[in-house]
């Protein structure tokens, strides 16, 4: 059987939220939602798993700290002992307080940049990447929910009837 894709458009985030709750409670799986802004509390309703971006960020920041320790040790202690204001300069640990700002800044730098790049890659939204939203109006003031017959054990007409029962603004059905 051919897969039918329903692009259900709503003109209000609350309407989409109510519709998602109603459809999910009837056992229908919502594949994806396209929205101009994050909709508070939608993720658990449509069964999106919690993001692991924070864990990535922590690991990037730890990498940054490690690199900063390596860098300060090599530049300031190992390669050439920099004597600044008579500070102890033959071991890294005795001079460590002076390196803390570097370690802090580099951790933040790596954590933030790593997180941003991971986010853009994972979502396919790096500059120049093709847009994946089905309708350009979802970047303006419309909200689209994507439901497929492949995901649901219902005939196309049954599914359509259930979708139509919600407060739909516009419904586009495509065959794949």
């Amino acid at each position: 059987m051919a897969n039918k894709v329903f692009h259900v458009m709503y003109d209000d985030d609350q309407k989409l939220m109510d519709a998602a709750k109603a459809l999910v409670s009837q056992g229908i799986r919502v594949k994806e939602v396209f929205s101009p802004f994050p909709i508070h509390g939608l993720d658990p309703v449509i069964g999106v798993k919690r993001t692991r971006l924070a864990i990535c960020s922590f690991m990037y920041a730890c990498t940054g700290t490690a690199l900063a320790i390596l860098g300060t040790w090599y530049f300031m202690v190992s390669d050439w002992n920099w004597n600044i204001g008579g500070k102890p300069n033959f071991t890294w640990i005795e001079n460590a307080p002076a390196f803390v700002p570097v370690m802090f800044e580099f951790s933040v730098f790596c954590g933030a940049h790593g997180m941003a790049i991971t986010y853009l890659l994972r979502n396919g939204t790096l500059p120049g990447m093709p847009a994946s939203n089905p309708d350009p109006r979802t970047t303006d003031d419309k909200f689209v929910m994507e439901i497929t017959t492949d995901d649901n054990n219902l005939s196309a007409s049954d599914l359509e009837a259930k979708i139509r029962a919600t407060d739909v603004y516009e419904l586009n059905i495509k065959d794949y």
Binding site: G85, G86, K87, P97, A98, V100, P101
Partner: peptide, 12 residues
Amino acid sequence: WFCQFMLIWYSD
């Protein structure tokens, strides 16, 4: 805490 310590320790 650390800023107070570090600046005083560093300038000595």
